[in-house]
């Protein structure tokens, strides 16, 4: 009788995704495209921020495009396309996050060389997207003032993998009794040193800072 064999595998479970994402990132960087992955819970205002970001970028002549993930409907893509930027919807049909190959397939026919910024609006979810690298250079965790200051403590996994945190709907802070210093402290507890940008897409607050941050990140990537 043959005894069971133990095979030492020592492989990353998401190796296939990680390898593809790494190759995609190298290609994006070679072409000078800053890829930004936006992650938050549903309703934080990813689409609103992105809509205003794209509108301003198009107006300023910064070549930008976006892919947007949702379980169903192309509502967000239609909303974002009003900015004049190239936008494509990824419908995941029930899947709770985007994976690198889904992004790759949906932009396969795009002329990436003509772009400077590519936004990936992930599926609204604070848990699942955190493990999947999409080839982005910047991962943005969004948090709205309506959600509560302790979101980073409740979902540390996501906030810990973010490069920058964007607080949205800051114009509603007072009405929501948003404790700004608690929010900043919670973010710093989960991701010490994280850059925080406070915005309101509706009122145009903080968007110059946000766009400036993106431009700086692109410059840093190019050097």
């Amino acid at each position: 009788m043959i005894e069971p064999r133990i095979l030492e595998v020592r492989t990353k479970i998401l190796k296939k995704n990680d390898e593809l994402a790494r190759a995609m990132r190298a290609e994006f960087q070679r072409l000078g495209v800053l890829v930004v992955n936006l992650v938050s819970s549903p309703g934080t205002g990813k689409t609103a921020l992105l809509q205003e970001t794209l509108r301003r970028m198009v107006e300023a002549g910064w070549p930008a495009a976006a892919v947007v993930g949702d379980l169903e409907t192309d509502n967000d893509a239609r909303r974002l396309a009003q900015s004049g930027a190239t936008v494509r919807q990824i419908m995941t049909h029930g899947m709770c996050h985007l994976e690198a190959d889904m992004v790759q397939r949906h932009i396969a026919d795009w002329d990436l060389g003509s772009l400077e910024y590519l936004f990936i609006e992930n599926v609204g979810n604070l848990v699942c997207p955190s493990s999947w690298d999409l080839g982005e250079s910047v991962r943005v965790a969004l948090l709205s003032v309506t959600e509560g200051e302790d979101k980073p403590l409740k979902y540390p996994n996501l906030f810990n993998t973010a490069d920058v945190a964007v607080i949205t709907k800051i114009d509603l802070a007072e009405a929501c009794e948003f404790d700004r210093s608690a929010a900043l402290d919670n973010l710093a507890a989960i991701r010490p040193g994280i850059r925080v940008i406070e915005t309101s897409a509706k009122r145009g607050i903080g968007l110059d800072v946000w766009l400036d941050y993106l431009r700086q990140m692109r410059e840093r990537m190019m050097n």
């Binding site: 043959i2 069971p4 064999r5 133990i6 095979l7 030492e8 595998v9 479970i13």
Partner: peptide, 16 residues
């Protein structure tokens, strides 16, 4: 942040 397969235990039922 690890998410790894460390090892796999395999048995050949053709033999056993």
């Amino acid at each position: 942040r690890e998410l790894d397969v460390e090892s796999i235990e395999v048995v050949d039922e053709g033999h056993s």
